[in-house]
Nucleic acid binder design. Structure first.
Lengths: 120, 120
DNA sequence: GATGTTACTTGCAATTAGCAAGTATGTCGA
DNA sequence: TCGACATACTTGCTAATTGCAAGTAACATC
């Protein structure tokens, strides 16, 4: 994995602009959909995979890794025998809510027919 | 250019979820930076190119085309001899402000050292 | 008519995405 | 204890997208 983490490295990937930095973390087609699912109450790998948009499994694995790296989520076992893990939003992760909400509002207003699946 | 426009085609590219639809339009590393520049008062191709992040020129051209397609911006001549064009946010485009604002706020809070270049 | 400016387009190598299949770990029932 | 099943990934390979560099077009100015 490349070292372009603007939070852990001293240098910024592209610029010190907060918008650019945020886009370096969540600026792709899948990451925020996983976060959306987390807001909607999904917790396990299988649940994310089962979402309507059918995220490719290798991309899901990579994005979860990234989200952990950026401390947006944490992974922890929720049962033994067999060990099963759940992914949970951190406080930092929960604070992505306003971004998601703003997107959902814009989408519902400007993309005819689009309708929120879940609430947050 | 591929036909994945969820607003003009009857079918949604991936899902009817407004977040997914919005990500299909602005879910990449560059589009929102151009929108940010527009909010910051930049108007011409050259001004976008001169931004700190140094967007590749072919990507800039393609993104401007997309933004026009989705009616987020309009292109119009602002002078003759020689004809020069400016790009301006539509009402729909201006309503992306809250998304940008939410991103900037999250970035300023969680990415140490990141600092907004401009106001809106 | 040579040079400069703005606004792109084109070509190509490199990175990333996406599909399908495979692997690892552990459960459960016969 | 062996086979079938489930969850959670990893790997291999092709296709699409990105990004760099260079080229082009239209016009203006010297």
């Amino acid at each position: 994995m490349k070292k372009t983490n603007p939070t852990s490295s001293g240098a910024f990937a592209r610029s010190p602009c907060p918008v650019a930095c945020v886009l370096d973390i969540i600026g792709d087609k899948w990451t925020l959909l996983v976060v959306r699912d987390l807001f909607a109450g999904k917790r396990t790998y299988g649940e994310f995979q089962a979402s309507f948009e059918k995220i490719p499994t290798n991309i899901l694995a990579e994005r979860l890794k990234r989200l952990i790296e950026y401390e947006i989520i944490v992974k922890s076992p929720y049962q033994q025998r067999p060990v099963r893990y759940e992914y949970v939003l951190t406080t930092k992760g929960k604070e992505l809510g306003p971004i998601l909400k703003a997107m959902a509002q814009w989408g519902e207003k400007h993309i005819p027919g689009s309708k929120a699946i879940s609430k947050w």
